[in-house]
Design a protein around this nucleic acid. Sequence first.
RNA 1: GGUGAGGUGCCUGAGAGGCCGAAAGGAACAGUUUGCUAAACUGUCGUACGGGUAACUGUACCGCGGGUUCGAAUCCCGCCCUCACCGCCA
Length: 423
Amino acid sequence: MLLANYLRENKEDVKTRLQKKNFKQLELVDLIIDKDNDRKKIQNQLDENLAQGNKLAEQIGGLMKAGKKEEAAVLKTETAQLKEKSKELQTVLETCEKELHDMLVQLPNLPHDSVPQGITPAENEVVFSHGNIPKLHDKALPHWDLCSKYDIIDFELGVKLTGAGFPVYKGKGAKLQRALINFFLDKAAEAGYSEVQPPILVNADSGYGTGQLPDKEGQMYYVGMDDYYLIPTAEVPVTNIYRDLILKAEDLPIKNTAYTPCFRREAGSYGKDVRGLNRLHQFDKVEIVQIQHPDKSYETLEEMRQYVAGLLEQLNLPFRTLRLCGGDMSFASALTYDMEVYSAAQEKWLEVSSVSNFESFQANRLKLRYREGSNKPVLAHTLNGSALALPRIVAAILENNQTPDGIKVPEVLIKYLNFDMIN
RNA sequence: GGUGAGGUGCCUGAGAGGCCGAAAGGAACAGUUUGCUAAACUGUCGUACGGGUAACUGUACCGCGGGUUCGAAUCCCGCCCUCACCGCCA
């Protein structure tokens, strides 16, 4: 959520930047400023009314104590009118504030200057690529066939237990999952991230804090009996740890990592993109989250992006880094890098990580602030990234490393496994 | 699920209709003292939204929402949450 004051002070700049994000209702900016002006006016009136009432009440108190009951009674009649007026103004103010809020939450975050102009994924900018696209042997298979050939991931069995998109990992497949999770967590710890194990069900307040609610309500699994949501990403519980806090400037940056399963309904997804591991309802992910001083958040974003790239290099997967164009970015992000690995049998790029700087957009909702010395609290910047999401990494490993004799395990994972081939 | 207790500032905790944005202690911060550390002393020490160049100042907030009252942290009603014990159970 953006701040009304910021819009007022940077009106034209805000509009041009919103346009870059392919946001069309620019008139909303003016409406918000007007509404905020109304709000101030109403509050002024209300405050004045209440102040008068307070003053009268004080006088009445004094008179009562002095035993001047008649004089007090006269003043009492005055307060009755004031009270009615205040009540009226209060409702008007509440309506006004609600309308203002409802408009404010419709504005997406403003894109950073470096965000490329564009509307579709085709306009994303490739900023880095690494590794060679492997040449597979003649009988190479897509990962879903490899999964059943070596009996490591069973999609049909998942359907029996739950439904489509809930695979069962078996034998070496299950071990590979554990190895990847441990590898990612160990690397994050080395990079200074402190590990947390948060709940994977969260309440509505947390959903609002990171912005999944209200917009993406339909994408989360909901436990109605207790009013909880299954997390779509560890970002939700981990970032919400810091909701409603005022941190000290010297505590920044805060670096957390968490492994959690993630649950997404993926309502509206269909077709070839959902085959095999490409799109699941439940998947595993290690997330990195940072809370940073506004002056340093872009430095931090670059560092996080390098960190994720390093993981992919160590896994020996060909990948590329995209700087997302305005139209392809998420609502809350100011700058996002996507990492895509090449899946050689499917012959396509798969998104395995998204690293974003939200600036103060999330922090405003979270009321996550920091204080420098004895200054007023200031909104912090939040950043997060996948490091990494497992399924598509697994898909790429299986496909790219396949040989006629089996699938070679990436070297860095061998110490976590007691085998080097899936066969 | 049952019963009981309770939700006050960074923490502990007092306040029981006006003198309360809230005692006291602790923590933290700044200063004095000190060879260093510590101690002692002094001071500062909530947030939000307004007005004002500023000093300052208005309003709201004692879990949330309503009510009573000229006036509510304090009284009344409803809700939520936490803790303890019992039951059930990993």
